[in-house]
Each structure stands twice: as C-alpha cells, then as structure tokens.
Design a protein around this nucleic acid. Structure first.
Length: 685
DNA sequence: AAGTAGCTAAACATCA
DNA sequence: CTGATGTTTAGCTACT
C-alpha cells in the first residue's frame, strides 16, 4: 500500500515540484539492507554490526576477561547506539548539504537514497505517517533494547567494581571505601533514574505502550518492545543491593528479560551460553544472541571504520585525539575511554543529549501533527453556508435511509483519523479525496468519479476553498462540466459559459487556461453524456444524465481501491504535495476573501445547492448493493452523503424515464428534449 | 496482462 | 487571417 500510494504521489507530480520520494525506495532500502522488519534504517550505520552477529568462539578466557569483554560489549553497544541516535538526529545539516540545496523540495532522487542518507526531515517528507511511526517505533524499540543492555551491563559492572572495591577496601581506609561506595551508589541511582526517565520518555512517545501480548506488527521481533516499562525499574531496583553478587543480579535480569521477551514475542529463547548472555537486536531487526566475549573485539576490529572514529580523530565527546589509523584509534579507545567513571559520565551526558533530541523530535512531531490536524480540520468545521447547502434535506426527502451520517461513517471505511496517531491529513478541502490535490499534473481518479460522491455537495461545502485556493479540484473534467451545466436553471451552457464557471469556481482554473480549456473541449466532444445543442444563441452544451451515469458503473464501496485511496490520502506524501502546493501558491488567505466570492459565485452557488438538494444531481452510483455510503471521502465533516441511495437503486434498475423524480436535473425542459433525442442513439458502447 | 478511464497535448476542421 | 469552437488522435498513468 505504501508503495502504491507513493508511486501515485510521485507520478502525480510530474513537474517534480514536490516529488515525494518513493516510499518503496525507503522501505526497501531499510528492509533490504537490514533484512528485517525494521530497525535497519537506523542501525545500519553501525559498522561493526555484522561481525558482531557472527559466532565466534573465543571461549578460553578467564572470568575476569569474560567480564571485561562483556562490559566492553555493553559499552560498545551503548556507544554505537548513542552515536547512531545522535548522528541520526543531529546531522541533517550535513546530509542536507550533500543532497540538495533546497530543503523544502525533496527531489525524487532522494527516494533512491539509502535511508541512512536521509535526514529526518526528508524521511518525514517521504514517508507516510504510518511508515514514520513504524520507523520511529522500531528505532525506539531498538534503542530501548540497547539501552537495556547498556544499563544492564553498567549495573553489572558497577556491582563488580563495587565488589572488588569492597574486597580491596579491606586494606583501605574506611573513609575511602565509603566514598567509593557512595559514588557507586549514586551512579547506580543516577542510572536508575536515567533509565526511568528514558523509559518514561519512550512511553510518552508510545513505544512502550505496546502490549506484550499484542504480538503483531513489525515490532514483535523486537523483544524489548514487549518488556513492560514498569518492569524495568523494578528490575533495576531489585538488583540494586550493593552486596549482591553481580553475577546473581545479572542472572536475574537475564531471566526476567528473557522471560518477558520470549513469552511475549514468540522470540525463541536462545540457548543460554552464559548467565550474562544477552539478546541483541541487530539493526536488521533480527534478534541475535551475542556471546559477550568476542563481540567487543569484533566490533572494534571491524575493518574500515568505527562509529567513534572519523577523519583521523577520535569522536568521543570532548576527545579529539588524532589517531593514525583504526588500530591506533581502537587502542586509544580502550585506554582513554575504557569503562570508567569518566566514560560512563560522558556516556550519560551523551545519552541526555540524545534524549533531549528525542524530546525535541517528539515535540516537533507533535507540533507537526497538530498543524496538520488543524489544517485538515478547519475546512470541515461547519461553515456558514454549509447547512443551507447541505443536500441532507433533499436526501431525507426521498431517501428513507437518512443515515445520520452526521457523525458517523456508516460504511466503516477508512476514515481520516482525527487522532494524533495518524493525524497526517493532507491539506485539502474537507471534501476531497486524497489523490487529487497535487496542484500540478494529471491526477487521476477524481473523487467524484472515484467515490461517486456528490460533487455538488462537496462543491457546495468547499467552494470557497476552491475558489480561493489554487488547488486542483478533485473532480474530473467531465463531472465539473456536468456540474457547471446542471447548476444553470436551464441546464445548458455555452462553452464560454463553462469556461467562466470554471474560472469562477476554481482558482486553479484561472491559470493554464489553454490546457484546461482544451481539456474541457476535449471532454465535451469525447463524452457522449455531453450533448451539443444548437440554440438560438448559438451552440450550447447539455448533459445526458443517463449517458453520464452509464459512463462507468462505480462499484467502489468498500473496494480495496477505495480503501487504498483513502489511506493513501492520508499519506504524508499526499500531505506534503498538497501542503506544499497550497503554500507555494500562497493561496491560503482563502476562506476569507469576501471580495472574491461575491460576484457571481454566491449567487450561482446557492441555486445549485437548492437544486442539488432537491435532486441528487450528482451521478448516483448505479449499484444498489454497493450503494451505501459513498461518502465523499474526505468529508470528515458531518454530512450525510448517503442521500442518494434510493435514487441509486432506482437508477440502477433504470426502470423507465431516465432520471426519475429524484433527478430533476434532467427534468429540465431543454435537455429533456435533447435527452429524448439522444436516447435512441444511446448505444452501449 | 489487458482493458478502461482520465488527463494532457496536439493536429485539424469549421465558422464568425 | 485570426480566434473560438469542435473533433479526433496519441501518449501517458492509474486503476480494475
């Protein structure tokens, strides 16, 4: 689905003005590179990852060595993680400069880039909200697990040090020992607090709220996702006792974590190689059992690069020591940045930096969502002219169904989420289908055709929007032409009048006149539903409703396509496109330029609505079965879109007179005649 | 994969 | 001749 929506988006913007990158490229890049559900995008940068996963039996180590390696590994994980986080969050500038000069427009080519090359902003622009969310969650899940690892190792190490200190302390002055112990305990406490804070943070962002039992979705391969947030602090607390052997505490944790993880996520319990054996989720999302011993070394020995090593110098915070080569750097790393208080503190600081960045990101995301929600919701707010224009009365008049759609979408189809969860709602007039808003380029499947939503009602509700916003209306030319014609009292228009209607009703058609006028003429000629009638005042165009209905039996209701469309409508790509389009056109003073709408629009509109109300002018989907609510897709507002159902049914069977009572549009005298004339020739083609 | 629908572009014809 | 109006064809994309 993402792929499709993405491709649609991308193709719909031929001018490349806002080429929203192919999401498929993104997901593929991440998934392919990582080979797994998800975290690949974030974790891929860790150079030593691959080798870390490989089995390496380096089993002849002394317990002390083993422990050291465990610590090293934990630190390594933490370092890499922090680096990834930090670089991922704070390096947009670099990437930007590399990728494009324009920060607003995302060249299509970006889509081809690997996820690692993408800045968060670009990711946001490219990815659909669900994708973003998934990515974020995966990232957070990975982060959480690594944090757990890190915390665990830190605890372990602290305990160990504590123990050794205690033992050594027997020969030391009691005072010194007390200080040391105090320091350790403080550190321990700090770590606990930090972890709790972090977990809280994650929880805020929704990650940890994942239900352990709800093992479905990309995250389920990530064991940590199933760890109950509240368990962790307890875990830590439980082992906080200084006197407890580190080994024991580790074992407990391991068991706990393993237990929760495996039970909740169908993540096969790995063979326990050692008490401190830990689960790691590799960037590719594949859980891996790491044997602590060789990991650290393999990390460091990864040929080529090290996350903390770049441009010949150590990237450790505050350290810019020059190192000739990687070997030297690693040596430096192991000596200067070994696991000690200082390094731990620095690590902690870095963690906080990352955390701040995450918070910042969360805030920005929230703001973005609010913005989008606002932009989306506003138009749907009851407008003054909405009520009068509403087709509801009419519908109720001849439709028994009056689904009080006022607040519900009876069809149960995908409705634009109003929650913050997927609030990404493209900027578009309330009644618009998603795909259509790209202000440039051909947009297929205008909503009127796609969803058979009454163009009249949508227009009535959003006409001001269209009138002032240079946004392409989501209707086909044919439906627009028809609407224009039907709006007139005698249901006929000259070509020029049609032109005028277009320009009057839609800001979008105030430019590129050659193009759309040509299209209008083309449509008039092409579609049999448009009948040219010689009139006293020249040639006028009328609508053959039956032909129009015949055009294409829409069997949309509940169709996957519909759902897909609506979903794609929520995609960030669409949002991005329309948002950019709207902003670019700076047409946003819409809705409040009284001067613009006065002239003829209001006058022309009102009649329309009346007529509309009286009769479902819009083609009624001719399928009684699928009938129900062909909600005007984006009509989050509370409009009954169902009115036409009965008419539909009638239309469907098409008993006798083309347009029954419900269709006064054809009742009009002039084209009625035309219609009749046209009837014979109406061949099913 | 084939068919259909829609959009755009363009060529061409007709007529005032 | 010019511009407006119609007609037709072709290419493309999206969708079924």
């Amino acid at each position: 689905m993402m792929v499709e929506s993405a491709s649609e988006t991308i193709r719909s913007a031929p001018s490349g003005q806002n080429g929203v990158g192919s999401i498929s490229g993104q997901t593929d890049g991440g998934g392919g590179g990582g080979g797994g559900a998800g975290a690949a995008g974030t974790g891929g940068s860790g150079p030593g990852r691959d080798s870390a996963a490989g089995p390496d039996s380096n089993g002849e180590m002394s317990p002390a060595e083993l422990l050291h390696f465990q610590q090293q590994q934990a630190l390594q994980v933490a370092r890499q993680f922090l680096l990834q986080q930090a670089s991922g969050l704070s390096s947009p500038g670099n990437n930007d400069s590399k990728q494009s000069a324009s920060s607003v427009q995302v060249p299509v080519s970006v889509a081809m880039m690997s996820p690692q090359m993408l800045t968060p902003q670009q990711m946001q622009q490219i990815l659909s909200p669900p994708q973003l969310q998934a990515l974020l969650q995966q990232q957070q899940a990975l982060m959480l697990q690594q944090l757990q690892e890190y915390y665990k190792k830190q605890q372990e190490q602290l305990h160990l040090q504590l123990l050794t200190q205690q033992q050594a302390g027997k020969q030391q002055p009691k005072e010194a020992l007390g200080n040391k112990q105090l320091a350790f305990q403080q550190q321990l406490l700090q770590m606990q607090q930090l972890q709790q804070q972090h977990l809280l943070n994650l929880q805020r962002q929704g990650l940890v709220s994942l239900q352990p039992g709800q093992a479905s979705g990309p995250l389920q391969t990530l064991p940590q996702a199933a760890v109950c947030p509240t368990d962790l602090p307890q875990l830590w607390k439980g082992e906080g006792a200084p006197g407890q052997p580190a080994e024991d505490s580790v074992k407990q944790e391991g068991l706990d974590l393993t237990g929760s993880a495996t039970t909740a996520t169908s993540f096969a319990a790995p063979p326990k190689v050692s008490p401190s054996l830990s689960h790691h989720t590799l960037p590719n999302g594949q859980p891996t059992v790491l044997t602590p011993r060789r990991d650290s070394s393999s990390h460091e020995e990864t040929p080529g690069s090290h996350p903390l090593y770049g441009h010949g110098e150590c990237k450790w915070p505050g350290c810019e020591t020059l190192c000739e080569d990687l070997g030297q750097f690693i040596k430096h790393l192991n000596t200067e940045h070994a696991l000690d208080d200082r390094s731990t503190a620095q690590c902690r600081v870095q963690m906080q930096v990352v955390q701040q960045l995450e918070i910042q990101l969360a805030k920005e995301s929230e703001r973005l969502q609010a913005m989008m929600a606002h932009l989306h919701m506003r138009p749907s707010e009851p407008k003054p002219f909405n009520q009068p224009l509403n087709p509801v009365p009419s519908s109720s008049s001849f439709s028994k169904v009056t689904v009080s759609a006022a607040d519900s979408f009876p069809d149960g189809l995908v409705h634009p989420p109003t929650s913050a969860a997927a609030p990404v709602t493209p900027l578009r007039p309330p009644g618009l289908s998603s795909a259509s808003l790209h202000s440039g380029g051909p947009t297929r499947r205008r909503s009127s055709d796609k969803f058979c939503s009454p163009i009249s009602s949508e227009l009535a509700q959003n006409h001001e929007f269209y009138k002032n916003a240079d946004v392409r209306p989501p209707f086909t030319y044919a439906s627009l032409i028809r609407q224009a014609i039907l709006e007139t009292p005698d249901r006929q228009l000259t070509l020029n009048e049609i032109y005028n209607w277009f320009t009057r009703m839609f800001a979008y058609f105030r430019r590129n006149t050659a193009t759309w006028k040509n299209a209008v003429r083309h449509n008039l000629s092409l579609h049999k539903c448009f009948v040219r009638v010689e009139n006293v005042k020249g040639a006028v165009w009328t609508v053959d409703e039956r032909e129009y209905q015949k055009r294409r039996p829409p069997k949309m209701t509940g169709s996957p396509t519909l759902v897909k469309n609506m979903i794609s409508g929520l995609s960030y790509g669409a949002l991005n496109a329309s948002y950019q389009a709207a902003l670019a056109e700076s047409s946003f003073p819409l809705l409040n330029s009284p001067g613009m709408l006065n002239p003829g629009s209001a006058s022309s509109l009102l009649p329309l609505s009346h007529e509309d109300v009286g009769a479902p002018v819009e083609p009624l989907p001719s399928n009684g079965s699928s009938s129900p609510p062909r909600l005007s897709p984006p009509q989050y507002s509370h409009q009954v879109q169902v009115k036409e159902e009965p008419a539909e049914a009638e239309e469907d069977r098409r008993p006798g007179p083309p347009l029954g009572p419900p269709n006064p549009s054809t009742a009009g005298p002039p084209e009625d005649r035309d219609l009749e004339e046209e009837l014979p020739g109406e061949e099913l083609s």
